[in-house]
Design a protein around this nucleic acid. Sequence first.
DNA 1: CTGTTAGCGCGTTCAC
DNA 2: GTGAACGCGCTAACAG
Lengths: 353, 353
Amino acid sequence: MGKTYRIKDIAELSGVSTGTVDRILHNRGKVSEEAQKKVEKVLKEIDYHPNLIARSLALKKKYKFVTLIPSFGQGEYWAKLSEGINKAEQELFSYNIEVERMYFNQYDRSSFDNLIPKIEEADCQGVIIATLFKESVIQLTQQLDKLEIPYVLIDAFIENTNCIAYYGTNSYDSGYIAGRLLFEQIHPEDNIAIFRFIRKGDMHSTQVMKREEGFRDYLYGHDFLGKIYPVHIHADESVENKEILDSFFATHEEIKAGIIFNSRAHVLGDYFQHQDIDKHFKLIGYDVIESNLSHLNNGYITHLIAQRPEVQGFNCVRALFRHLVLKEKVEQINYMPIDILIKENIKYYNNYI
Amino acid sequence: MGKTYRIKDIAELSGVSTGTVDRILHNRGKVSEEAQKKVEKVLKEIDYHPNLIARSLALKKKYKFVTLIPSFGQGEYWAKLSEGINKAEQELFSYNIEVERMYFNQYDRSSFDNLIPKIEEADCQGVIIATLFKESVIQLTQQLDKLEIPYVLIDAFIENTNCIAYYGTNSYDSGYIAGRLLFEQIHPEDNIAIFRFIRKGDMHSTQVMKREEGFRDYLYGHDFLGKIYPVHIHADESVENKEILDSFFATHEEIKAGIIFNSRAHVLGDYFQHQDIDKHFKLIGYDVIESNLSHLNNGYITHLIAQRPEVQGFNCVRALFRHLVLKEKVEQINYMPIDILIKENIKYYNNYI
DNA sequence: CTGTTAGCGCGTTCAC
DNA sequence: GTGAACGCGCTAACAG
């Protein structure tokens, strides 16, 4: 019944040696037709599953994966994702898998481009790429295709690549959901503010743009009668921001709902808290990062939309592992769940892997 | 640097044999104080991580885990959980881990009790127990304690057991969250129906009771001014249910919000769909099971609250694995995230493990 | 108390 | 084209 067959058993059953069985299993040729047939017959009968533990011990092969993600500060989005990578690395330690981390500046494309040649030098078996800079990523993937190094994409999906797997959320839909969550909290004729963070040299990330698109589509598809006011905020200069926000709210006292399509909702939360503005402002943000958390708890943020970054990081490494070591087929496109977090369920959002 | 030490290296470094090192690593005694000290010194210096692959290969130990969960039909809650167990079993196959499944009738305590003696016979190394029948579970766990067989609890936490791990949600809080989700959709003075499913011989599950408690606490803590009407429905007899619901809605036309604290919200969905009742009734239910899904999509259910059953099943098996094979310390109490599902995010809720 | 050694299942020489 | 033999790192039995 539950008998597991060893390669030795197969050899005995088919009257050849273990070496021959091995050659057939991995079709490295140099086998007589006769032996081939005998072994194949046995294989079909017994449903052979190799012992992966033994295999990996025997192979003694080192795997090196390289990750290309933005550098991060403590508690930030990419830090969460990195934790998932750490966890996977730890778990796969005994399989001789090592992860080399390369970081780029998420606001500076050239910092990404500079890393590209380093990947070739790294002599690795797999790469994990955060797809912030689409054109650069395409260039890199073409290079990897040539080198026959498998890669996994994370963040936004890019078509026409041969990535073995992609992990991320559907940005449009996550914006659409944000639309519903905000619209439920206001009256149809209320106005809404979209706070956009601008950095010098920053093209708007496609993810943020797609989210906004989904958000607007929800509203205009559901008898929203108000107006949407974009407010442009500098990502770095907090002093200037205060002025911008002060003047915006001075002229738009009626606005009591807003949204931010990246993880910086806490900037608004900080502002409201400082201004001692009452908590009737409805603010929706993205990503469960430390600085957003307290504002969700104290009420300055009503909803956070999240995408299990640790799970994503974990799965990226696992995808390479499964592809290379276990030789399993990995699902290519993996949209992560879009999680809705409120004050009441946030404390359980540990994203247990 | 990245050098990994073998047990043989430790032996050389400390001037003893591998046997001695092994005895110290697993403290099976019979080691001189001198050797002990020398080896311990080296161990501290090198931060030794055993190669688990090699260990498990050498041990060649068979592990048998027994699961005690309710029997289920396709697409039901326990089916999802079972999928997670399958997945874990598959993944741990090479570690010689085998899972034996025992099923009981979730509405018949004696069917659970009958299984208890079978567990001893099974000669297993670990047990996973769905805690539907508290008293019976306590009895079982005491027996397992005597036999020194580790066990994992799932569903509801039971205090005063020595379980190595528990996976489940905080029922009270998940009811509390349901309270918020429903209350946001109605006016403070609106009335609410709680549909309770009754089975012959069925004591209300503690989970369902706790959820209702949390639900009520939310409402009464947030200036809810309406009334709550419990409606008792038979779990099996659909004909009779129609009458009950007909008469209830005939006398309570004003009620346009309701909740069901187990996974049977689809029963109400079916009823509404049949009656061609307009979709302004706000209904909240639990668990992403197939029959609830369509009603979430067609609007008869507005929210589902879910708890990642596949992840739970997966983690239960992994907990035993980590405890027994990896000898890792496993977190004892693991509250799962409380997920909020709406029409717009349900399609991504695949609970990727 | 200690060191040596034979496996665990698989991959890979290296003679035949 | 084939098979015997060794080694991956670790465990445990056994001889000293």
